[in-house]
C-alpha cells in the first residue's frame, strides 16, 4: 500500500455514503413524537380515571413498556425502528425493546443462563449509570442539606 492510514481513512470516508439526514431526522422526530403523544393520551386517561399524578405516570410507563414488549414479540418493533432510529430508541419503549429482545433471542440458551443472564445485555448500562448518577446526586444533596 502506498497510502498511509490517514490517507486511506480519507479515501474510505469519501467512498462511504453518509446517512440521509433528510430521511432519518424527520423519521425520528415524527415517530418519537407520536410515541410521546401516546404516553400523553394514557397519562390523561389515567388521570381522568382519578389516579394521582405519580400513579398515573407510573401506569403510563408500564403500559408503554407492555405495548413495546408485545410489538417486540411479534417482531414489529424492529420494523418500525428501521425507519424511526432514535425515535424508537430514546422513548421508554426503546428501553423495553432492549430488555425484551435479548430475553427472546437467548431463550435457546435456557431460562437462567440465556434469558436471565442476557436480559440486561443492552439495557444494563442505562440502569447502572442512571442509578450511579442518582446515588451521587443523593450524596451531594445530603451534604448540601447538612451544611
Amino acid at each position: 500500500m502506498k497510502l498511509t492510514e490517514n490517507e486511506y481513512g480519507a479515501l474510505a470516508k469519501r467512498r462511504s455514503p453518509d446517512t440521509k439526514l433528510y430521511k432519518t431526522i424527520p423519521g425520528a422526530f415524527v415517530i418519537g413524537g407520536l410515541i410521546c403523544c401516546t404516553g400523553q393520551l394514557l397519562l390523561n386517561l389515567y388521570s381522568s380515571a382519578g389516579l394521582d399524578k405519580t400513579a398515573a405516570g407510573t401506569l403510563t410507563s408500564v403500559t408503554l413498556v407492555a405495548l413495546s414488549a408485545l410489538l417486540t414479540g411479534f417482531g414489529l418493533y424492529d420494523k418500525i425502528a428501521k425507519h424511526a432510529g432514535a425515535g424508537t430508541l430514546v422513548p421508554i419503549t426503546g428501553f423495553a425493546n432492549a430488555v425484551v429482545s435479548p430475553a427472546l433471542e437467548f431463550k435457546t440458551e435456557g431460562y437462567v443462563l440465556g434469558v436471565g443472564a442476557k436480559i440486561f445485555l443492552i439495557a444494563g448500562p442505562v440502569i447502572v449509570y442512571g442509578l450511579a448518577a442518582s446515588a451521587l446526586y443523593g450524596i451531594i444533596l445530603f451534604i448540601t442539606q447538612a451544611v
Binding site: T19, L21, T24, I25, G27, A28, F29, V30, I31, G32, G33, L34, I35, C36, C37, G39, Q40, A84, G85, A86, G87, L89, V90, P91
Partner: peptide, 16 residues
Amino acid sequence: AFLAGGALCAIGQLLI
C-alpha cells in the same frame, strides 16, 4: 408532547 418528545428523539438521531 409531540414537539418536545420528537425534538429529544431528533437530537438522539443526530448523535447516531
